[in-house]
């Protein structure tokens, strides 16, 4: 019975895990807005900092709200997700690289 409760708690989340995720998400969001609004860092430093905060917050949401984990029941979900992340990185980075290069070589700016 105890096993049943703990395993269902893991796959659906509990009030505690949702609250943990929520508090972490609030801290990360406030930090991102704070860094930008206070102009505490140089522009390039700010870009790097808020991008890092966004990545951390996405992981927090995936773990605490979407209940992603390394269990065998989640294996195919995680595999599909990793493949998608890879595709999106190739898509976005490739697009930015190619269009930036084109724009420089065509002297359109």
């Amino acid at each position: 019975m105890a096993d049943h409760v703990s395993s269902s708690g893991e796959s659906h989340g509990s009030v505690g895990s949702y609250l943990t995720g929520f508090v972490l998400a609030v801290i990360l969001t406030v930090a991102a807005f704070g860094i930008v609004m206070s102009h505490a860092m140089s522009p390039s430093g700010t870009v790097g900092a808020i991008a890092l905060l966004a990545v951390i917050q996405i992981v927090v949401h995936l773990v605490y709200f979407l209940h992603m984990n390394g269990s065998s029941a989640q294996r195919w979900n995680v595999m599909a997700f990793v493949f998608t992340v890879l595709s999106v990185i190739v898509l976005v980075a490739g697009t930015i690289f190619i269009m930036h290069d084109t724009s420089i070589n065509m002297m359109s700016r």
């Binding site: 969001t29 991102a32 930008v36 700010t46 870009v47 808020i50 991008a51 966004a54 949401h61």
Partner: peptide, 17 residues
């Protein structure tokens, strides 16, 4: 909500830096 994290970071916040 995850998509919105990317929206507020890469669209709104990065545009006002």
């Amino acid at each position: 909500d995850i998509v919105w994290i990317c929206v507020f970071t890469f669209v709104y916040l990065m545009s006002v830096i």
